[in-house]
Design a protein around this nucleic acid. Sequence first.
DNA 1: AATGAATGAGTCTTCATTCAT
DNA 2: AATGAATGAAGACTCATTCAT
Lengths: 188, 188, 188, 188
Amino acid sequence: MDKRERIILAAVEVFRENGIEKTKISDIVKKAQIAQGTFYLYFPSKLSVMPAIAEKMAARMEEAIRQSIKAEQQWTIQLQQMINAVFTVTAEYRDVSTLVYSGLSATEHVREWEEIYKPLYKTVASFIEEWERAGKTRKTDPNRTAKLVIGLAESAAEQVYLFNSFDAEEENRQKEAALEFIIHALQP
Amino acid sequence: MDKRERIILAAVEVFRENGIEKTKISDIVKKAQIAQGTFYLYFPSKLSVMPAIAEKMAARMEEAIRQSIKAEQQWTIQLQQMINAVFTVTAEYRDVSTLVYSGLSATEHVREWEEIYKPLYKTVASFIEEWERAGKTRKTDPNRTAKLVIGLAESAAEQVYLFNSFDAEEENRQKEAALEFIIHALQP
Amino acid sequence: MDKRERIILAAVEVFRENGIEKTKISDIVKKAQIAQGTFYLYFPSKLSVMPAIAEKMAARMEEAIRQSIKAEQQWTIQLQQMINAVFTVTAEYRDVSTLVYSGLSATEHVREWEEIYKPLYKTVASFIEEWERAGKTRKTDPNRTAKLVIGLAESAAEQVYLFNSFDAEEENRQKEAALEFIIHALQP
Amino acid sequence: MDKRERIILAAVEVFRENGIEKTKISDIVKKAQIAQGTFYLYFPSKLSVMPAIAEKMAARMEEAIRQSIKAEQQWTIQLQQMINAVFTVTAEYRDVSTLVYSGLSATEHVREWEEIYKPLYKTVASFIEEWERAGKTRKTDPNRTAKLVIGLAESAAEQVYLFNSFDAEEENRQKEAALEFIIHALQP
DNA sequence: AATGAATGAGTCTTCATTCAT
DNA sequence: AATGAATGAAGACTCATTCAT
């Protein structure tokens, strides 16, 4: 596999296991099964892997949303799928998501964040637009609303995954609460 | 000023300037104008300053909310004040809020997070409870809703302060969007 | 152009720009526009390029002296030409001359130094011999004197080129002083 | 002893033993009997010790000259003492002198070179001035002549110490040749 | 309680060298 | 002969932590 890809995947794993602070580049290369020096052919530092991880995470979320939603479904079902997707990917990247976030803001990469999230926002916005056009939900600025929805869902997911030792029941209650919250927020 | 206090304030500044990763204890003590060794009289490590920062931030938010809200106001006005407070404190702590968040999660301090946020959540929950009891808003689990509301407001605020060079107009539009979103989410 | 030649020329440039210590083989090959591995087909190490550079430099100096001096000229004019030649080539190789010098001495290539300078010394010595034989200058050991003369001229040149931002006036004064110094040193 | 001093002395020894290229900072600190990190409290890099060494060397030479010369001696004896001093110190710092020289030029410290040599030049110039005033030697620009004299003496010394395995006889012949050369160069 | 020079283990980072193409 | 991606040993450098003052 492509070395760059290997590094990113390994970094995600290692960051998750040890946290950013405690992660050594030597850990990453060990997991990626490449030589120490090879890392520096692709990334200049530990933190510079962050944008690449964020990109993967956002892409994953965008894809998860797009794939799980079917055109013929009710909008509330579609919204539910959306929330499920956000929860799933957030779970997958748990700890890491926050770390990535702070890893980005700690560097000069903040600007890239928006760029990275753009496709995700766009996909969600287009669904919301569709709902509004069909009169299912109230008129809003779909782009702004998309950001709010994703922000809310992520925040809800993080509250579950970050602070509670995993608890499927709690996870479901949180999903439901978020769903209900957003449904009410959007319905006409 | 009290040395502990000086350290916390200095840490906030330095974390903001350099990010957690790149912040050295020597940076903090330099900014705090104390000796290297003195740091250890108050904190055992760089990250252990985090809970103290988070505490300050959450307390300020809680206080800002409590102080800006008056009992006789309409619930939507109260909600608006709430959002204003969240935006104000998030702005004040901008980047740092994320850093604190991940700084906490990177260590064993995660548990403290909930403890720290509890008063804030409680205050907001009590307002929501009030609204629900008065029939202004629909019945929910006030505690869970409080978390969703704060999570949404923080997320909305971060989107403004982190990525856009400051823009008062945009800030207002974002506040308004969040307000409207939550009003619809909560109204009966 | 011949790759070996390209490497030598590139090395001179890079050594001058960065100094020996900071020069990487990767810098040399980049400047020479050849592949990293190609370097090793011609030289076993960075420092082993030194003798080749020194050789070029000494050869140029020797040639410059031989070509600029005409048999029928007065000995003082011949000496002046000699000094001019040393100054010209030293300027051309400025800093590098010192670097080469120390680059050679830093390794086991020291022995080669004398070998390399031998033709230059020999040429100068033969002129001095000629002057002495003709009774123009006092009797000395021509070989030893040749080394002193070249050493003095080089040292004088380095003082001009290394430390002063270029200054034609100063250059001339220095040449003149060196000339006068040597004339007095040699005249009967 | 002062740590900075310890580092400089150790560096001279180690540079001499291994050459600059092969010298590790760990070697220097080992010889200086200080911790690795302590080095960086005084010098930012290996090469930045160079100016300090050069300073010591120049100071040593200046002092050796000043101390070995007595006012009542003949000027030729004084000159001889001068040459002896240059030879002695050059021998003491042999290899190192060239390395220091190139170490300086390899960095941005070239400018410092003149600053460092200034006292030495000044001392020699004042002797030459004295000789000229007393009518012992011909009128010149004493400062420029001082540089030529030192340059010649150093160059002569290096030719002995750098390339020949030590040979007392050769050393004396070289000293004598240099002395005679300069005497002729300066006498009226 | 406060200091800050000194420490050295722990990492990062470089870069000469190799080797499959 | 030429290439240049990959290697990993070697060293540079950092920085949390200590402790004598």
